[in-house]
Amino acid sequence: MITYLKQTIAKTPVFALFTLVFWCMCGCTSTLTSTQPATQAANSLYDEIGGSKTLNTVFGVAINRIYNDPIIGHYFNGVPKSHLRKQLVSQTCELIGGPCVYEGKAMLDTHKDLNIKEREFYILVEYVQGAMRDVGLTYQQENQILQKLAPIKSETIYL
């Protein structure tokens, strides 16, 4: 069955086109890496985006919008912006290979009994995505950071 599939698919021009696209994508990666100096190649995503300075700006922008949101803003009543910002920066820094250790409370504990809805979580994600774009991170960097932050969903909603 699988062999039949492979043969059928491999024959089509569409598949050829697709293979080409992927090769191109992979090719771009290796070209990029190989042309960079050795010190740069070993850099983490954290270094690539400009470290804690960039994360600080990103979360500064996002938090301002989050605190002003009519639907999710109220969850942060009594939480100083600077505190949340510090926590988010150190947590993200650690997740994307930076020299930080998140020392805040566990996500499960801080979100317990808040009964945060999935809709509210998505609103927050869009603010963070939007802030990354506005601060000037590339779409690829945004995706890679989101990939690290995504599992937080299960530690925050409906607890």
Binding site: M25, C26, N143
Partner: peptide, 10 residues
């Protein structure tokens, strides 16, 4: 969906 999977693309 694999986020940031191929050269940073989803």
């Amino acid at each position: 969906l694999y986020l940031g999977h191929i050269n940073g693309f989803n």
